[in-house]
Design a binder for these strands. Structure first.
Length: 491
RNA sequence: CGGGAAGUAGCGCAGCCUGGUAGCGCAACUGCCUUGGGAGCAGUGGGUCGGAGGUUCAAAUCCUCUCUUCCCGACCA
């Protein structure tokens, strides 16, 4: 076209280097930074504000459904893990262990002394330590169900870490419940699966396919694992939240036993479910662009930023007018007036990188004409409006932002779903040529991994729990194909 | 944990091969100028060159070790 390309707010393009771009978004929006400790991150105030929104929305929902919050220790005696064989096998390799309780000076160096008799694991998840409590709390069917949740940090010593997506320490919420019957526990697991679907798809406007994990990929110790498999803008899958029906495995391991209605002793049926700070990485990779972050309004720290365009002769009038704008907005609209003494231009691009949905620039002209001039973050469209009209329609503007975010993300992802693959070889070709995406195909339901796909890091992400769109075709000729499965690459 | 790359000012980088006063762009600060839009000009401040040890008269530069980060695998939320 001959037109010079617009300068972008980030200096890395998503299409050129996805992973460098991902990190540039985080840095540009001041979400987090690497800590000096391997694999750990500092979540900066703006990033944490997003997490606080996530917490608030989910916590309200959990409580609405009858759950209560509690707190359990972060140290778990290692021998407690020995009680559930599959569970410990699944987590052993990534466990951080505390072996000492004291430091001593030796040649000017601090060295651990006072070895512990029983080493303590730093929790990678809390099924066992919470189950141990539940075993004390539950005597009768009348004590059930137990519906607890905790917001906490957990540690998994991963080999390769990526900010928000896989850090050695991360924040999450873990719900743990115990029930009288299998049916009740299964209903709980699927209910929380639906809560996560609602949150990730409807609230965060991400694209994902809710479903069940194939047997070989369940949570260690679970009977059934449900997941929301989200598609990122590089076409790869991200497991965004999981809920598990644990059967009686953990109840037997720690002794959650109760006397039933008929007088007999029974083991409870338990569930667990969680979502972590990984979801912020998912948000970034779902909605951000070459100008930085884009946020759905539900978790955006600010809906509106007002940048005053101050000159020597107008500053009070402009500031007064900004406050008037703020006062005229509905209460639940989060508007912020940035009076810091940086240049308005730099402030504007800061907020573009931070993904604030509506960025207002207010100067003398706006004061004179009682209007607002603003940039809509998503496509950087500029618009002018009378203050009256703006105050009346601001909620619609925000709703429109969310709607566009949703549509934009969904359409891009739908385009990358392939339901026409009819053999594993065709699947390989698809992933080789199409820069990733999801393949939906019939799968025979066998537990073995599909080794033909292993070398390409393609795996079955889930067996969708809701039918949407046309069914996939069979990829294993001669097999009795039962269900659709989602195949994708993941990091 | 295997293979590769990298760490120099807040950010992005040059300098290293061939050892000799720590540099550039952006950002910041001061002044002037400009004023509807990521301005311009001049000036200023900011670095124990990731850390430790070694070689040397002299180390950002050479050697050894170590920490951290990034990429590709394996593993996983």
């Amino acid at each position: 076209m001959g037109m010079a390309e617009r300068k972008h707010a980030l200096n890395v393009k998503r299409s050129e280097d996805f992973s460098a771009w991902y990190q540039a978004v985080i840095q540009g929006a001041e979400l987090a930074e690497n800590a000096s400790v391997r694999g750990c991150m500092v979540i900066k105030p703006y990033g944490f504000a997003i997490w606080e929104r996530v917490q608030r929305l989910l916590d309200d929902k959990f409580k609405e459904l009858g759950h209560v919050n509690a707190y359990f220790p972060m140290f778990i005696p290692v021998d407690l893990f020995e009680k559930e064989a599959e569970h410990v096998a699944g987590f052993a390799k990534e466990m951080a262990i505390v072996t000492h309780h004291r430091l001593e000076q030796q040649n000017g160096k601090l060295v651990p002394a006072g070895e512990l008799e029983t080493p303590l694991a730093v929790r990678p998840t809390s099924e066992l330590i919470i189950g141990e409590s539940m075993a004390r709390w539950v005597k009768s069917y009348r004590d059930l169900p137990v519906l607890v949740n905790q917001w906490c940090n957990v540690v998994r010593w991963e080999m390769r870490t990526r900010m928000f997506l896989r850090t050695a320490e991360f924040l999450w919420q873990e719900g743990h419940t115990a029930h009288e019957t299998e049916a009740e526990a299964r209903a709980e697991a699927t209910q929380m699966h639906e809560v996560y679907r609602w949150f990730i798809l409807d609230v965060l406007k991400m694209f994902g396919i809710p479903g069940k994990k194939p047997d070989y990929d369940r949570f260690a110790g679970a009977v059934d694992t449900y997941t929301i498999e989200c598609m990122m803008q590089d076409g790869k899958a991200l497991q965004a939240a999981t809920s598990h029906y644990l059967g009686q495995n953990f109840a037997k391991a720690v002794g959650i036993e109760f006397q039933g209605r008929d007088g007999s002793l029974n083991y409870a049926h338990t569930t667990s479910w969680g979502i972590s700070t990984r979801i912020i990485g998912g948000l970034i990779m779902s909605h951000s662009d070459d100008d930085g972050l884009n946020l759905p309004s539900a978790v955006a720290p600010y809906h509106i930023i007002m940048i005053p365009m101050l000159k020597a002769d107008n500053s009070q009038a402009v500031l007064d007018y900004c406050n008037k704008i703020k006062a005229s907005l509905p209460r639940d609209v989060r508007a912020f007036l940035d009076t810091r003494e940086f240049s308005p231009q730099n402030k504007k691009w800061d907020y573009v990188r931070k993904g604030v949905p509506l960025i207002l620039e207010i100067g003398s002209n706006e004061v004179k004409s009682e209007s607002v001039y603003f940039t809509k973050r998503l496509f950087l469209e500029k618009q002018s409006m009378s203050l009256n009209e703006f105050a009346k329609s601001v909620e619609q503007l925000i709703a429109a932002h969310d709607e566009m975010l949703k549509t934009h993300c969904e359409e891009a992802c739908e385009k990358r779903i392939n339901r026409d693959v009819s053999s594993l070889y065709e699947m390989r070709d698809f992933f080789r040529s199409n820069q990733n995406g999801f393949v939906i195909a019939k799968w025979a339901g066998k537990n073995d991994k599909l080794e033909l796909l292993d070398d390409m890091s393609i795996s079955i992400r889930c067996i969708p729990s809701l039918q949407s769109g046309a069914p996939g075709r069979c990829v294993l000729t001669g097999e009795e194909a039962a269900t659709d499965a989602v195949f994708a690459k993941s990091d």
